[in-house]
Simulated scan of single mutants.
Amino acid sequence: MSGLSAPAAEAQAHSAHLREVIQEHIIAAGGGIPFWKFMELALYAPGLGYYSAGAHKFGPGGDFTTAPERSPLFSACVATALGAVLRQLDAGAVLFELGGGSGAFAEACLLQLQADDALPARYAILEPSADLRQRQRQRLQQRLPAALLARVEWLDGPIQEPWNGVLFANEVIDALPVPRFSMRAGEVMEEFVALDGEGRFVRREQPADPLLAAAVRHVEQQLPEPFAEGYRSELLAQLPYWIQAVAGGMQRGAMVFIDYGYARGEYYLPERGDGTLRAFRQHHVTGDVFAWPGLQDITASVDFTALAEAGVGAGFAFSGYCSQASFLLGNGLQTHLLGLEAQATDEVALHNLRQQAKALTLPSEMGERFQAIGFQRGVDLEPAFALGDLSHRL
């Protein structure tokens, strides 16, 4: 991680506090906690975790840049896809965003939906971080007309009462606390986090519980050969329950998820024998997920086959699966780009817009590394995935 500076003294103190909290959890649990619990604490411990504390995370000054921060083109194209579903629903439809980030998506999406005459009655954001909620609120208050702002609300959990609408999540599933498994003498083991003699975090293995073991065997049956001795990876066995939970009481509507990851056959390739787990800090990636808890993002790629299974298992019909590039191009990227170019004031602005479009779609950038997947119930979302369908890979 050359070029990565050490955290400031205040940040180091913050990280040390969270490290102590995690150490206390490990001791209280008898010497070890599942890796997913470590990840949950590192990311979401109240007031201390990476996503629940106040550090700047998004954009050039943060640790990573998501597509909505890269360009409003992303949000405009997603709005086109979601708006087509909202127009199929009644006047009380809800657009439900999981994890609002900086608020950039909500801002651009609402403006595009207004232009397309496809506004939802409510735009609900589920954001667990109080700090991010405040940042989202400030951004939208400053940049949205009052009539649009009045439709926005923040929720503490999924919508439990019956509702119709669309659910959207960009780079959310990769941040769900994920179990890690390994294979030892043909048995499925689960990775735990323990402490060495000096209080440092170390890996430890113990037999996996029945849920994780069964999920690993389910995956293994779909692969050309069994997992090799010592193979280590991630598997979000709770994903079906998570999908059911976030859909809540949805009666009619659609769900769209965009994230980085692979179809199952590629996710669990033999050469990917240490999984996809990694951490981000200051736009640098590292495999040391134990370093600086609370100051770095921890993430694992998404198994899109597992996501497809979970969505269908929750009672939704599968709508489609494609690369982010295909999804954006199939939902009006060229039209939206031309519209923004017409508003550009000089050649620099034109150049920037075209660079944004390239960043979102080029294979070497976000275009192929990120994929989109959709589900529907009582509506038709399939046209959003008409270009570049990759469902045969699932």
Rank of each mutant, 00 (worst) to 15 (best):
residue 186 G to Y: 10
residue 186 G to K: 07
residue 187 E to W: 01
residue 187 E to L: 12
residue 187 E to C: 04
residue 188 V to L: 12
residue 188 V to E: 07
residue 188 V to G: 09
residue 189 M to S: 00
residue 189 M to H: 03
residue 190 E to C: 06
residue 191 E to D: 14
residue 191 E to W: 12
residue 191 E to I: 14
residue 192 F to Q: 15
residue 192 F to L: 15
residue 192 F to R: 15
residue 193 V to M: 12
residue 193 V to F: 11
residue 194 A to H: 11
residue 195 L to R: 04
residue 195 L to Y: 08
residue 195 L to D: 06
residue 197 G to W: 13
residue 197 G to M: 10
residue 197 G to Y: 01
residue 198 E to K: 13
residue 199 G to F: 02
residue 201 F to K: 07
residue 203 R to F: 14
residue 204 R to M: 15
residue 205 E to Q: 14
residue 205 E to V: 12
residue 206 Q to W: 12
residue 208 A to P: 07
residue 210 P to W: 11
residue 210 P to Q: 10
residue 210 P to C: 01
residue 210 P to T: 12
residue 212 L to E: 03
residue 213 A to N: 08
residue 213 A to Q: 13
residue 214 A to E: 15
residue 218 H to I: 08
residue 218 H to Y: 11
residue 219 V to Y: 07
residue 219 V to I: 07
residue 220 E to I: 01
residue 220 E to L: 02
residue 224 P to C: 00
residue 225 E to K: 13
residue 226 P to E: 02
residue 226 P to T: 00
residue 228 A to C: 01
residue 229 E to L: 10
residue 229 E to F: 00
residue 230 G to P: 08
residue 231 Y to A: 06
residue 232 R to S: 10
residue 232 R to A: 12
residue 233 S to M: 08
residue 233 S to T: 05
residue 234 E to L: 01
residue 235 L to N: 09
residue 235 L to E: 04
residue 236 L to P: 09
residue 236 L to K: 07
residue 237 A to S: 12
residue 237 A to I: 01
residue 237 A to V: 06
residue 238 Q to D: 15
residue 239 L to D: 03
residue 239 L to T: 01
residue 240 P to E: 09
residue 240 P to N: 03
residue 242 W to Y: 02
residue 242 W to C: 10
residue 242 W to V: 08
residue 243 I to G: 08
residue 243 I to W: 05
residue 243 I to F: 10
residue 244 Q to D: 12
residue 246 V to F: 14
residue 246 V to M: 11
residue 248 G to C: 11
residue 249 G to C: 10
residue 249 G to R: 11
residue 249 G to D: 06
residue 250 M to V: 07
residue 250 M to S: 05
residue 251 Q to G: 13
residue 253 G to A: 00
residue 254 A to R: 06
residue 254 A to C: 10
residue 254 A to I: 12
residue 257 F to K: 13
residue 257 F to Q: 04
residue 258 I to V: 15
residue 259 D to T: 04
residue 259 D to N: 01
residue 259 D to K: 01
residue 260 Y to V: 06
residue 262 Y to T: 01
residue 265 G to C: 05
residue 266 E to T: 14
residue 266 E to H: 12
